[in-house]
Design a protein around this nucleic acid. Structure first.
Lengths: 191, 191
DNA sequence: CAGTAATTTCTGAAACAACAGATATTCCTT
DNA sequence: AAGGAATATCTGTTGTTTCAGAAATTACTG
């Protein structure tokens, strides 16, 4: 398989960013390639397109599956595994956030609760600091869980509220500019 | 400097999590130690408390400064640098998010725009996929910028909206349960 | 403008991660 | 059950990261 110049550049960028994202170059490249590929690709195609070893591709795909970032597809009359990324980008974001939370936040939240369970140990400052941190993480993960429940449509609606966000948070103010409220019709210009 | 058992356990946990957070063990430990320390600490104290080399401490502090995660403090009659973390945890979160965005998102957004600037190249699927990704990132960073502008109080208010979040997004519904609206007082049962 | 304390940078060793090629396993076909 | 295609795992090599200790630099003190 041969890449177009556009695909090439995109793939190389994702490879370079890999290390910042906590994955290796090959994993980044495989993901980028699948992301830009209209058809699902098999391991062989990925290997030749990226010019990496077959084994490297295999490990990369395994890692991407552990992240639930690729899906397996089977084509008729072909028993090779073919891989794609979801068409819906918001679904990809949801997956990414969920996985990162699972790996980067949850273990710490568990540990903090564990430390608190062991009861007061007379280390007052540290204890209060830990409690505060736990509360903050709980607040944030609680918010995350609420957002996770929203359908994509509502989520986008929330994200594109823009400057109206501030207004919504002021008690008594409605999101509907036509609702009965003195300040109701503020801020209406979208992008 | 000698650590209490509570500090010890917390510090070790942050060290272990370091690799998942994209920092090394020592950096994680230094941060954890400073986080639990009521007084600012100097490099020497950190070194003995963690049992690492002086040079390692120096590199770790440099890295934490690059992340803007620690602040420098000078005590009277002492020319050594002393380090602390902010008292306000929300400030820490803001810093973390801002830095991660800068390192993990912005370069890719720039690259995507760059690719689009090079104009259509007849690679239709890839082009539309890239445009879609850029739009999504712009939506998310736009939302982030709005949240960044909120004072902490409002931010916490937003995050603790809970199930009312859904209600707020339904056009015409006010955040104020007493506002005049037929559906106004719906959605009050918690989890 | 020495002398010394504090900090940073250099150096090499050890641990770890990434990778290609070879070998082994799985799973389908007949 | 044998053959063969697809995939996964093992093995050794290369590259990278982490770290301590040494050397160099910087920044104060008298």
């Amino acid at each position: 398989m041969r890449l177009t110049p556009l695909q090439q550049e995109f793939v190389l960028h994702f490879g370079e960013m890999g290390s910042r994202w906590g994955i290796n170059r090959t994993v980044g490249q495989i993901y980028a390639l699948l992301f830009l590929s209209e058809q699902p690709l098999n391991a062989e195609q990925i290997t030749t397109a990226l010019g990496v070893s077959r084994s490297n591709t295999s490990m990369g795909l395994k890692e991407l599956q552990a992240w639930s970032l690729v899906r397996l597809r089977h084509l008729p009359d072909d028993r090779r595994d073919h891989f794609t990324t979801p068409d819906d980008l918001w679904e990809i974001v949801r997956t990414l956030v969920a996985e990162r939370k699972k790996r980067e936040i949850d273990p710490t939240l568990t540990k903090l609760r564990e430390l608190e369970m062991q009861g007061p140990r007379g280390d007052n400052y540290a204890e209060s600091r830990i409690a505060e941190l736990r509360e903050l993480i709980e607040t944030m993960t609680g918010f995350y869980e609420e957002m996770e429940k929203l359908e994509t449509e509502r989520l986008v609606q929330l994200m594109t509220l823009g400057s109206r966000l501030r207004g919504v948070l002021e008690t008594g103010r409605s999101l509907n500019p036509f609702a009965k409220s003195k300040k109701g019709r503020a801020a209406s210009k979208g992008k």
